[in-house]
Design a binder for these strands. Structure first.
Lengths: 153, 153
DNA sequence: CATCATTTAGTTGTCCACAATTTAATTGTG
DNA sequence: CACAATTAAATTGTGGACAACTAAATGATG
């Protein structure tokens, strides 16, 4: 069994996190092009996906689905509201909470978004099984990293 | 053979790009904790890794290694310079180019960074083969996505 | 050699991520 | 019931990604 020289470790770790970073940004590039017509950024698109799937939600729940806090969501939602895709309304029964509701335009936009996933999957040049397996692996990785962050902090 | 309902595609695509996004941000969380002592952010650490490995480089080359342009690097390098880790000097033979050079402090910081990779790998809870395979897959994914972006654009 | 195209950094503006703090509402406990 | 602790959003400040543009230097071509 051979041992990796200490000096090489600085290269190896670069490659895992960096490969991930690069892939994530490459996705960003493809989405940017595809979403331009819809007038959405990629994070805005993710928010719309959650709303299309789950219906109206308070900011808190939205944040749980997306792992984002109000510091990120508040201004983003304000922009979606300006774009007329979403309304924000204080909840009647708990006035701390703000309900995010799709407008008619927001609902209608879903039709035009339907072709995006197919084109994204085509762009990956992966078959569905491969995508599925990669996703599973990434979920495990994320869980491990989250746990490690908790420990250290 | 069964067909996936069109409405489900909006969920599937969320999962690939989203899983990647989540993993990338989870890495960010771990790095943030580990790099706090070194006074570096994660992107700053990536820049230092490249400089430690390749020595002094012009901004252009640095950007090629990291897939970043001057719009991102210029302010980041300014912060590294303020921190005393790096100097920026106009190249003598091509005055368009700016050489990024490690200072003594910048070189010295490498010692303290040596333990970071080991702790990151431990945090992933993956063995080295698995990491290697994941990296290969991600590189292929990135290449495919980049190619697709070129096509569309 | 004079001019035009290309290359390299930097700047500006928009959007996102996240930590830390603030404000207001709700919940829990004595 | 009063008051402390908790919770939900928003805000502020820092840092990063990227597009679009500018300025300056270099290279290429007629």
């Amino acid at each position: 069994m051979t041992t990796t020289p200490t000096s090489d470790w600085l290269r190896l770790d670069q490659q895992i996190c960096f490969a991930l970073n690069a892939a994530s940004r490459a996705f960003g590039g493809v989405y940017r092009v595809l979403l331009k017509d819809l007038g959405l950024t990629y994070p805005q698109y993710l928010v719309m996906l959650v709303l299309w799937e789950h219906g109206d939600l308070p900011v808190k729940k939205l944040g749980e689905h997306l792992r984002l806090d109000s510091g990120t969501l508040s201004p983003l939602l304000k922009r979606l509201e300006t774009a007329g895709l979403v309304r924000r309304e204080r909840s009647a029964r708990d006035e701390r909470s703000v309900e995010v509701r799709l407008t008619e335009d927001g609902v209608a936009l879903r039709e035009r978004a339907l072709e995006v996933p197919r084109r994204i999957i085509a762009a990956t040049d992966f078959d569905l099984d491969e995508i599925q397996e990669l996703r599973t692996r990434l979920d495990r990785l994320t869980a491990a990293l989250d746990a490690a962050t908790e420990d250290t902090h």
